[in-house]
């Protein structure tokens, strides 16, 4: 099994075509859409978490590339500045991915970066500016 977060850029010629659904139908892959956007010039951006058997995953990515989709790993990371974080927990209900959770015993906020989808909602919501975006 493999599960990776990837960024797909669709040229405007491809935005109206069924492509991602084939990952499920023909390559038996599962995906979660983390972010989707079509720009005014009709280029598409899709951030996915894609998972499935290793071989299927490779073939699926190969298929995407052949159709003209630009595939990149998700390289944007949200990092917590541990010195600035006060563990107040105001970010906890804001995080849509469940990556920020209060540890019941210590009352500290744990940041599970593997669950983070880099949506950046916490970055602006953190009053102390402890959540930082790194590229």
């Amino acid at each position: 099994m493999v599960s990776k977060k990837i960024v797909l850029h669709f040229p405007h010629t491809l935005v109206d075509q069924p492509i991602v659904c084939k990952l499920v139908k023909e390559y038996d892959l599962e995906f979660t859409i983390l972010k989707a956007n079509v720009t005014p010039r009709e280029e598409g951006l899709l951030v996915l978490e894609l998972s499935g058997e290793d071989k299927n995953y490779e073939q699926g990515i190969e298929y995407l590339k052949k159709t003209g989709v630009n595939v990149r790993p998700l390289s944007k990371n949200v990092i917590r500045n541990e010195e600035r974080c006060s563990h107040c927990s105001v970010c906890v209900p804001i995080c849509p991915a469940g990556a920020l959770i209060v540890e019941p015993l210590t009352r500290k906020v744990n940041f599970y970066s593997d669950k983070c989808i880099a949506c950046e909602l916490c970055v602006n919501a953190c009053p102390l500016g402890a959540m930082e975006v790194h590229f």
Partner: peptide
Amino acid sequence: LKKGKITVQGKDVPTGNLSSYPK
């Protein structure tokens, strides 16, 4: 509030504290 969820108008609502208890 510190359990992380309260009920308001019959709905479960997640809670966040602006004040840091650990600090």
